[in-house]
Design a protein around this nucleic acid. Structure first.
Lengths: 255, 255
DNA sequence: GAAAATTAGTGAGCCTTCCTCATCATGTCC
DNA sequence: GGACATGATGAGGAAGGCTCACTAATTTTC
């Protein structure tokens, strides 16, 4: 309507406080996290985040390239703080079953404690076409690799049978858990991390454990054949992978 | 620029074709499906759907209450056509292992054939807070219940041990599959429905099967020997195909 | 300690997209 | 061929993400 020059005093600009970059960024991140969790990504409005953070909308764009970037940064922060002292806890646990169970239980507990955040990760971030470029992808990989290490150890020691692709096991554990808690994430009822962890661990453990009851002659023969097969597989695998190794680009794990 | 009254003849209204309700609805649904699949839900624009369907934006709102409703209807249609003659196929399959394997394989194949549609279901629809009210929810339930019935039968017959909550098993199968194919859905690499189905079925079956009861030792030994034979065959195949290995492009599964 | 330089912060407003509604036109029925 | 039911239109409103020229708080310079 009126030229800003004319009535400069009519619109007194709000008192402006300049904060150090890190502080302002942390404020916005915290507020964004709250709003995202309350409303979900697409219903969250930048104007509200700005207002609650005590800044104006344009300010957000000085620290983040856009709404999506804000979401990613929020999740990254959460992930990092969540993974702290993970290993330390795991160190105190002995035995394959217990260690596996701990990993599953821990995952379930995180979901139970922060469902809104998990919703964001599962339904917004992971379906993104360039999820792979996210730091969250890398952190998640680290996270699940610990479980794979437990299984690998058990295979090496002979407790688990070999020949089962590790990736599938990981998928069944984490995918199973995720599928299990979707209803909870949608706000339908509750679940018990303890009970669910028991059930998941049980199936996985039994699915992988080597049956070693009484070893009679037949059993011995079969086992020897299995071992031969395994050795042959390894040999064949080595031979063939030498050729193809040169063209291979990325690693194995993904989610 | 100019008042519409003044130059009424200057903007000749496009030739209007009036279609029966069902026909127009089908046209819009088909176009919407294409656009949703190409762009994903949030990047799909109603103006484009309208244009491609040969109508104007407002017309869409005569048949659907909004963008979200359009998505749901699109998915519902797809789901229904997908579930046709499911049971008939399953009838022809005998044995718990084979039947389970068929269900997993079938699911993987659907995903493999129509990844874009699955992306919509997994990341858009299922995370919705009122997903439960969707017809898709009900259809999906039907779909997974067939798997549960197979497992229940095996428990009743004594082939599987009892005491494992059916829900968890379902979660591990479908969740595992889903987790397994996420990378594929994001366009990263490929996977083999056959191999993946084998691996998933294997873990689940072994996790549930009762040791030494319905399946006696001899039966078990034979089964294991068969597996050994299979592995040996594969290994032998690998060794002989070293030459052709160099032309192979991707590995097996990706996620 | 004042002027200059730096840069956090502002806020009006642009653009895209979903959605509404008053109006028009087409096919059908008698 | 006129009346009626309704398929279809398109201009415009509202909301929200994002930009940018500008303002003023803080730091640096001399």
């Amino acid at each position: 309507m009126s030229a800003p020059v004319a009535v400069a005093s009519a619109l007194p600009r709000r008192q402006v406080f300049r904060l150090p970059r890190a502080q302002r960024m942390a404020d916005i991140l915290l507020t964004a996290r709250q709003v995202f969790c309350e409303k979900g990504y697409s219903d969250a409005v930048l104007a509200e985040i700005a207002e609650r953070a005590g800044v104006v909308e344009g300010t957000i764009y000085r620290y983040f390239t856009g709404k999506r970037d804000l979401l990613i940064k929020v999740v990254e922060h959460w992930y990092e703080e969540m993974l702290t002292d993970y290993d330390r806890q795991l160190e105190g646990i002995r035995g394959t079953w217990n260690r596996l169970r701990f990993m599953v239980w821990r995952h379930l507990t995180v979901i139970h404690n922060d469902p809104a955040m998990c919703r964001l990760v599962f339904s917004e971030l992971r379906s993104d076409l360039d999820y792979r470029d996210t730091a969250v992808f890398e952190l998640n990989r680290e996270y699940t690799n610990r479980t794979l290490a437990i299984i690998q150890d058990a295979m090496d020691s002979g407790e688990f049978r070999t020949g089962v692709p590790l990736r599938i096991v990981r998928d069944m554990i984490y995918g199973g858990v995720e599928h299990h808690i979707w209803a909870f994430l949608r706000g339908e009822g509750d679940f018990s991390p303890e009970d669910s962890a028991d059930a998941v661990t049980d199936i996985v453990y039994r699915g992988l454990v080597r049956q070693g009851a009484a070893i009679d002659r037949g059993e011995q023969a079969v086992r020897r054949l299995e071992e031969v097969a395994e050795r042959l597989e390894k040999a064949a695998g080595q031979v063939t992978t030498i050729e193809s190794e040169m063209s291979r680009t990325t690693g194995k794990a993904t989610c």
